[in-house]
Amino acid sequence: MEFIDYYKVLGIDKSATADAIKKAYRKLARKYHPDLNPNDKEAELNFKKVNEANEVLSDPEKRKKYDQYGKDWQHADEFEKAKRASSQGRSRSSSGYTYSHAGGSEQDFSDFFESMFGGASSFGGRGQKVRFRGEDYHAKLQLSLMDVYATQKQTLTVNGKNIRLTIPAGIEDEQTIKVKGHGGPGIQGGPAGDLYITFSITNNTAFKRDGADLYKAVQIPLTKAVLGGEILVETLTGKVKLKVAPGTNNGTKVKLKGKGFPKYKKEGEFGDLFLTYTVDIPKNLTEEQKSLFEALEKTNLA
């Protein structure tokens, strides 16, 4: 378990006064406050670090213990002692900072802090204070592209409660939907908080996606590109036969209307599938093929 230099975190000297600590803390807390750094995981982590450092250094008892034992904390016996000692109540946090992301999945305190000062003391400043409206929950759901090809219902378990969700077709990667009232309970008659679900969509198909449109490169043989013919192409709904015109250039784009991905919140509407023909120049010719090409060359083929 790694030692954390709380003085370094706050950018102060080991001999810093309580005032200096407070100033340094407030300055950094302002800088990393989640309300001023929306959707910034790094800022949130820094905010937690800074809060933890302040929790220790602004409390004379904790600071003393930290100064004395801090660096030697890797010693097994100290670790054991702390584990046995129950958290000494205390911890009226001097920060009073709150923020709205009480995801609950990440620890509020580092392992280092917990081993030295015991488990989560009532760190009042951490997480969302429930004053009336319940706290918001944040969840992440991993799905594959084909999972969102059709609107489907899924049952999720969040904090022990089952929620029946309707996942609309065509939802985008990293899109967040709000499920009202499925967050934590409110107090004193307040409404429940909301549940925010962020979807992580993995595309493991042969198609590239851009909204409701799909893109794919299709290789056609040189002879077919020159002479024309038919090819069979895979779409999301099965194979499609396509006519290739004679004299089709490499890079030619073809649009298959309505063969794309479902449009988000537009039931029954689909985007388009764009195919790009790639014509590979044949290598490793047989003797016969080579001589045929040489014959073609003699005809001054452009």
Binding site: H33, D35, L36, G96, Y97, T98, Y99, S100, R133, D194
Partner: peptide
């Protein structure tokens, strides 16, 4: 939710 954020900005920051 919006008003709570405003209160945080005002009181904490």
């Amino acid at each position: 939710p919006i008003l709570e954020k405003m209160v945080r900005l005002h009181k904490e920051l």
